[in-house]
Design a protein around this nucleic acid. Structure first.
Lengths: 336, 336
DNA sequence: CTCTTTTACGTAAACGTTTACGTTGGGTGG
DNA sequence: CCACCCAACGTAAACGTTTACGTAAAAGAG
């Protein structure tokens, strides 16, 4: 069994209060006893019990992160940013994957509540009323990452999806493309689906190009398979298209893959721009031009927002819209 | 402030001991008081404090996972498997990323020790003496994932790297290739580097083909850039090569990318087989033939081994060598 | 030198549980 | 009817800390 503060106190010939004081560097001890206590701590290899500390301080220095799925390629970077910042600020992170399932999410929330975590980062999923109410009752701060809530006052960090989609489309237009298609995500997804579609549509309209349902494919999700299927449909539906805006990098990979299988040359026959800038975007063949989100930065930002709330005690903090950026690589070609 | 067991006890008109008993379903209460207590619990929305429980039970139902880096594409799948199994068995997982830095690793271990986690999964890095001794002192079980220790008796789950590399090379030989090159990882890496090199070498020798230093490139790591550079060197060094064994999928992607940039047709000009079967392997262009590790399964296995040790109290449990598997896709072609 | 303040501690309660032990009351066997 | 047992509780200690409060000695003021 590990040593306790009592062992240290006894061996150093002081009370446990004194040991606690030097441990937390609180006033009330002489330089001499400090040395003595520290020496005993060193000697025994004593390390304080964070569980006991958590009990009395009502603080566990642990935060929870809820991902809808751990298989998405976004999570690596998000998690990376979150963990880095959290650790820098002295906290650990517990990961959960809810599989976008309401019941599982509630179970996780309950678990996190019982563990008395200090805060929650909720990633890439819609914040249902049930979740919000529960977390509210928990009385701990939360921030949304790569999602937002129209119904509840919860701070979030995101890029502006509509703007980013607008930028991507505009980029294609600037390259001289007129017939532009889109492989979108779910149009009923108000967070990542609809806004990107709207940005696409708006960019076309601003350029005086008619938006037609013929030029867009609505997928179920944002995955590779969606891109594969979407590309097939789009090519069949509107073969005259010269450029495509894919609503995610994974969709773009699917599109690239379909193109490869069917002898469509990218970017010679058709240009493609993705969305996300996953680390594998530059590994694609050809390297994927995409509108990038600062993923790691977003994770870090979410974490620091959470800690800001923890320290200040405020339940709210300013939202952060992080800038997107076009990464010019090799899947888009100038249209003569 | 959340309700405590006292609130429940008072409101139900019983002692806290009784509440605790119905909570943990321990004998010593009548059906009637059970109903009464449960009703109050429901009414107040009481949820037990896991921190207090952890203090008295010496069990936090939390495990720690140490990754060298969160950017590697392997972590997603490993983490997925670990988290799934851990959650199934009632535990949470804290992720750490050590950046393969000794000092940081020790800091993380100390943190995890203070948090009194139940066990540790140590992933894809060498277990230094310092780490081992510390964890040993912590007195909690640990298992190694995708790594092993020659010096210390720590159970691990891995695939047999040498066998897998042998299989990959053999596969190329069976396809009629005679001049085979390898882009390896670090040859001084006794875990993931050397064994794969040895498997490669052995397969060649078994087929009566001389192994020459000309046919192998030693990289620093297993990343994309290593593949990019490695491919360049290899093509310059041994242009007669018709097939390549890449020591990781990321290396293979780098090789693919280099080939694309320099007009080398895969698999027409040269065949490539990778190692890992990352989820993006099938998204590659062309889809990557590779020798796959059952990544999610490995994560799950590591977690269940850990819990087996926790339950049995044994400090050791049988190692698991999981089977690898050749995924035939489109980067290898039969040599006429 | 005396009185007051400050420093350097120690004592004990508190955090929210679990659990060993003690205490009832009703039931059973004889 | 008595002795006994067992089910159904309650009491209190324990887990390892932090911290309010008390106290003795040292330091400072006059």
């Amino acid at each position: 069994m590990a040593y306790t503060i009592k062992d240290v106190a006894k061996k150093a010939g002081v009370s446990i209060a004194t040991v606690s004081r030097v441990l937390n560097n609180q006033p009330g001890f002489s330089e001499k006893t400090k040395k003595k206590v520290q020496h005993v701590i060193e000697e025994l290899g004593y390390e304080p019990n964070a569980v006991a500390r958590g009990l009395i301080n009502n603080k566990t220095h642990t935060i929870g992160v809820l991902f809808p799925e751990l298989s998405s390629m976004l999570v690596t970077d998000f998690l990376n940013g979150i963990e880095t910042m959290a650790h820098e600020l002295g906290s650990s992170v517990i990961v959960c994957h809810t599989e976008a399932d309401g019941e599982k999410t509630m179970k996780y929330l309950q678990l996190l509540n019982e563990k008395r975590i200090d805060g929650i980062i909720f990633v890439s999923a819609i914040l249902k009323e049930e979740y919000y109410n529960y977390i509210r009752k928990m009385g701990i701060p939360m921030v949304l990452l790569s999602t937002e809530s129209y119904s509840y006052p919860v701070p979030y960090v995101k890029v502006n999806d509509q703007h980013a989609a607008y930028s991507a489309t505009k980029y294609l237009l600037n390259k001289g493309h007129k017939k532009i298609g889109m492989i979108s995500g779910n149009k009923d997804d108000l967070i990542a689906g609809k806004p990107r579609i709207m940005g696409f549509e708006m960019a076309l309209k601003d350029q005086g190009i008619a938006f037609t349902e013929n030029n867009i494919i609505y997928s179920k999700g944002f995955g590779f398979q969606d891109g594969l299927d979407g590309m097939e449909k789009l090519m069949k539906q509107s073969p005259e298209i010269s450029a495509i805006f894919a609503a995610s990098d994974e969709i773009a990979f699917g599109a690239l893959s379909f193109a490869y299988q069917h002898g469509i040359k990218i970017p010679d026959d058709v240009s493609i721009i993705g969305y996300d800038n996953l680390s594998i975007a530059e590994m694609a063949i050809p390297p994927l031009t995409t509108v990038g989100q600062p993923l790691i930065k977003m994770g870090k930002t979410a974490a620091s927002m959470l800690f800001e709330m923890l320290e200040s005690g405020n339940v709210f903090v300013e939202n952060r819209i992080l800038p997107h950026e076009i990464l010019e690589r090799e899947t888009v070609r100038e249209k003569r």
